[in-house]
Design a binder for these strands. Structure first.
Length: 890
RNA sequence: GCCGGGGUGGCGGAAUGGUAGACGCGGCGGUCUCAAAAACCGUUAUGGGAGACCAUGUGCGGGUUCGAGUCCCGCCCCCGGCACCA
């Protein structure tokens, strides 16, 4: 046995033994507590894993291994999110079938995950593209459909011209497709939706019940966008319209009206105009009533608005546009006439698509009013400082949007606070029957249709009359046809539409119908895969309720923050639906979520040359490493960028394991920075972990001759020496610290605790009289054994090798996690700080458990303290036993 | 603009209101070597001092406290997210 860390001599050996022993098969023994540790369902890219991906998997593995050793039944599975655009696009490019390609890539992921020693239960693995899995995705679709939560409608959707499919709102970032990065276009086609808005309230409220990072919760809250306000009816002022005789004959004297939503009903007396979105239904009615000149302007504006893409609209953010319709509406608050405008800063998709505009107290309305010369009225004033009159307030910046204010110029409501006014006006409108208090959400329904081949088929049939039917459960799954050509058609329909064998089907009456040809977006699969892991071999049902009830919720869910409003919101939604259907016992799938930081790598750039365009957010032209080498050094500069294939800055675990070893890689990834923080990858720095492992191997080798296997039986009885007590104190301090740190996801300090422990052991051993006394041998035995077990989750190969070196049998994974004895943490004497007026002046030794008086006496006895107290009178002495004494004097 | 997270040595970072800088990287000095690498040992916040020591120090300005990196108030800067959502 070498006295150094030599990974090539044992790491592969242990991985083979783990595999032979089926070490990571999920234990389901009754009477044990459970722990479900899960990583985000990865899409297996052809590029393989980088050390950046490993930063997700290693920490979860550490916590799963510790929990197992602590006696939990641990579920730690891995599978593959196989459907979706990236897979399909690459398969088309490489002219392979996506299923075969995914299998190959998944096998490579599996190999790499094994290589870094991750303890997954591979017997539970599956891909979302396996018919045995997506059968149940379709089954859940039908459940949603039957509960009124899946529906189809014509919709103006985000069309990605590169991907040739529509995207969900969550997949459009700043007006650009999340994968393609090109502006999305609007397209009006029939689409399938899941009615996530029906759960908006619970999705927002239940965030308070889960242990997730604040940032993710905040993003979900923003995305759901719950706001409370009042929706009310506004009548069009008919007298102001140019109505022909025919109008009155046809319509009688019915009033035209529209509804608006506001969160600031308290500002209604400040309404000086109102605005309709260009798509608002009322506009077509107004066209015939407002005179030719206005009608022409309205038509032109509508046309222009239609041609604007979302990106253009966002770029045009700076300048407000709009036209006056020529019509007026009545403010129901005070009966005043206000102009009706059309402007695209009002969205047809939110609220009622119409607003009351209060330029005095809304920045957007203010900007609009200033541009078009509309009156600005102040109706809210800041609460004046005590003793001052409201009227004494000087000029303040408009618009005043804050809610801490009182109402002015507001009729009988003048003098109310904003909140009083909101309540009173809401009730008043409700009493009059012209409005009601209402909660509005920003969240839209989840667009699930994709016009692509490589996805889970939507299990719907259109019968001979074109009516929808669900595929009966015994005919599930609707499998994808095996075809050679599945390229997108480009006309907004799925390539499945061109495959008669797939499309043609008999309906429930035996007549010829046709199948729905849209497939589901990949987020459908990842919205329930964690349930399938509880019971992956079940062919009778999606999961047994008993098993799901045992394992759910996921106790520790780990992945990147980029899925905040996509996967993490959808999965919560599905879980709630399944909970309502009585199929799962929890209404939140992930009890605790952690986001790992990204791994950044040095990436070469050069300054742009004349005429060259820079990518968004870049300050140079990115180079490959070979290009950078070819250029003179002064022309190249480096930036930290996320590891990615396209940037050519990827470091693979394969190369690091080859050169430094899997355990060194694991410890480095754990140690380099706090778990949630981004890290700057420096392969050279791994040598710190290699040295640490060297030291542990050496330490084991030197302690081995004194190692007593049965130390546990006699350690209590042995007469302790100062040295043995010190060793035991170091051991139990390390046990306490390591355990606590892993539980709180502080893996960097977990590794550091092991380093401190091994350094302490080394010091103790170096300075001990050899051969050590009985108690010292026993203490050393306990220490080295504990060190190895504490090391096991982080560096499992080395731990098993060292375990064997000590002559112990089996795997560290099967050993019990050490438990610290608090009584051993107490030293005979402790060093305390002595301060004079809060400034550290000396440290002195006192017996542990000494009285406050003894602390004071020891502190005052210090010559340094005495010299600092010269000419001063002691006023007060603060004693924190075992910590410090602070002498207050002047 | 709004929301969230941060700002500590040359670097990554540590620190339940109680000795700031643990642990590691790098640097410096040394051992070994013909030499180098590796490994190991020592040292390393800043300023002053030969030294024991002294002073300063956790983005900036105030405050609470016997005592503040930590709590409170007001700013500045960085990172991430959302972005005309009424």
């Amino acid at each position: 046995m070498p006295d150094r860390y030599d990974p090539s001599s044992f790491e592969a050996k242990w991985r083979a033994r783990w595999k032979d022993a089926n070490l990571f098969l999920t234990r389901e023994e009754s009477g044990r507590k459970k722990f479900y540790a899960l990583d985000f369902f990865p899409y297996p890219s052809g590029a393989g894993l980088s050390v950046g991906h490993c930063r997700n998997y290693i920490p979860t593995d550490v916590i799963a291994r510790m929990k197992y050793m602590q006696g939990y039944n641990v579920l730690h599975p891995m599978g593959f999110d196989a459907f979706g655009l990236p897979a399909e696009n690459e398969a088309i490019k490489t002219k392979s079938h996506p299923q075969k390609m995914i299998q190959k890539y998944a096998a490579n992921y599996h190999r790499q995950m094994d290589l870094i020693g991750i303890g997954y239960d591979w017997s539970r693995s599956f891909s979302s593209s396996d018919p045995s899995f997506y059968k149940w995705t379709q089954w859940i679709f039908e459940l949603l459909y039957n509960r009124g939560l899946a529906y189809q409608k014509m919709a103006s959707v985000n069309w990605d011209p590169v991907e040739q499919t529509v995207l969900a709102d969550e997949e459009v970032i700043g007006g650009l497709g999340w994968r393609s990065g090109v502006p999305v276009e609007k397209k009006l086609i029939p689409q399938w939706f899941f009615k996530i808005t029906a759960y908006a309230d619970r999705l927002a409220a239940d965030l308070d019940t889960i242990d997730w990072p604040e940032g993710i919760k905040a993003q979900q809250r923003n995305w759901i966008g719950r706001s409370e306000g009042v929706e009310f009816r506004m009548k069009v002022d008919m007298a102001s319209l140019q109505l022909g005789q025919t109008f009155f004959e046809e319509k009688g004297s019915d009033d035209l009206a529209f509804r608006v939503f506001t969160t600031r009903i308290d500002t209604i007396f400040g309404m000086t105009f109102c605005v309709l979105a260009p798509e608002h239904a009322l506009i077509d009615q107004l066209l015939n009533m407002v005179g030719e000149e206005h009608a022409n302007q309205i038509r032109a504006y509508k046309e222009k608005a239609k041609s604007l893409s979302d990106v253009d609209r966002q770029a045009a953010n700076l300048e407000k546009t709009g036209v006056f319709t020529g019509a007026y509406a009545i403010n129901p608050g005070n009966g005043e006439k206000v102009q009706i405008w059309i402007a695209d800063y009002v969205l047809s998709t939110y609220g009622t698509g119409a607003i009351m505009a209060v330029p005095g107290h809304d920045s957007r309305d203010y900007e609009f009013a200033k541009k078009f010369g509309i009156e600005v009225k102040e109706v809210i004033a800041p609460i004046p400082p005590k003793g001052q009159d409201t009227k004494a307030q000087g000029a303040k910046a408009l618009p005043y949007e804050a809610k801490d204010g009182i109402m002015i110029n507001s009729g009988e409501y003048t003098g109310s606070t904003v909140y009083e006014g909101q309540l009173a006006l809401g009730k008043w409108f409700e009493g009059l029957g012209i409005g009601e208090r209402k909660t509005q959400y920003r969240l839209r329904d989840w667009l699930i249709s994709r016009q692509r081949y490589w996805g889970c088929p939507i299990p719907v049939i259109y019968d001979a009359d074109g009516e929808k039917e669900l595929v009966t459960e015994d005919c599930l799954p609707v499998t994808l046809p095996e075809v050679d050509n599945y390229e997108p058609s480009g006309d907004g329909s799925s390539p499945l539409k061109r495959i008669p064998e797939f499309v043609n089907v008999t309906d429930s009456e035996g007549k010829l119908g046709h199948r729905e040809t849209d497939t589901m977006g990949g987020f459908a699969c990842s919205s329930w895969y964690f349930l399938r892991f509880c019971d992956p071999e079940n062919y009778e049902e999606a999961w047994s309720q008993e098993k799901a009830a045992y394992w759910m919720p996921v106790d520790c869910y780990v992945g990147g923050a980029e899925h905040a409003v996509m996967h993490l919101l959808y999965a919560r939604f599905w879980t709630k639906v399944l909970f309502d259907a009585g199929l799962v016992s929890v209404s939140e799938p992930f009890a605790r979520l952690q986001n790992q930081g990204q791994v950044l790598a040095q990436t070469p750039y050069r300054k742009p040359r004349e005429g060259e365009k820079l990518a968004v957010g870049e300050d140079g032209i990115q180079l490959s490493f070979s290009e950078a080498k070819a250029l003179p050094k002064d022309q190249v500069f480096y930036r930290w960028a996320r590891m990615s294939k396209s940037k050519g800055n990827v470091v693979t675990p394969d190369e690091v394991v080859e050169s430094q070893g899997a355990d060194a890689l694991r410890l480095y990834e754990l140690f380099v920075a706090p778990f949630t923080q981004d890290v700057q990858w420096q392969t050279d720095d791994i040598k710190g972990q290699v040295r640490f492992l060297h030291r542990i191997f050496k330490l084991t080798e030197v302690i081995k001759p004194y190692f007593k296997k049965d130390w546990a039986a006699s350690i209590r009885a042995a007469m302790p020496t100062a040295k043995s007590a010190e060793i035991r104190r170091a051991t139990h301090t390390a046990i306490a610290k390591a355990t606590e740190d892993i539980d709180r996801f502080a893996f960097n300090t977990y590794v550091s605790a092991l380093m401190i422990f091994s350094n302490a052991l080394q010091d103790a051993f170096d300075s001990s009289a050899k051969p050590p006394a009985e108690a010292e041998s026993l203490a050393l035995s306990e220490a080295i054994e504990s060190l190895i077990l504490l090391l096991a989750p982080g560096a499992p190969h080395s731990a098993d090798e060292l375990w064997e070196t000590l002559g112990k049998k089996g795997f560290t994974y099967h050993q019990e996690w050490p438990i610290h004895d608090p009584s051993l943490l107490v030293a005979d004497t402790v060093t305390i700080a002595v301060q004079v007026n809060g400034k550290l002046r000396d440290t002195v030794s006192v017996a542990s458990g000494a009285s406050n008086e003894d602390h004071e006496l020891s502190a005052k006895a210090s010559p340094k303290v005495q010299s600092n107290l010269e000419d001063l009178t002691i006023r007060k002495i603060i004693v924190i036993p075992g910590k410090l004494v602070n002498i207050v004097a002047n």
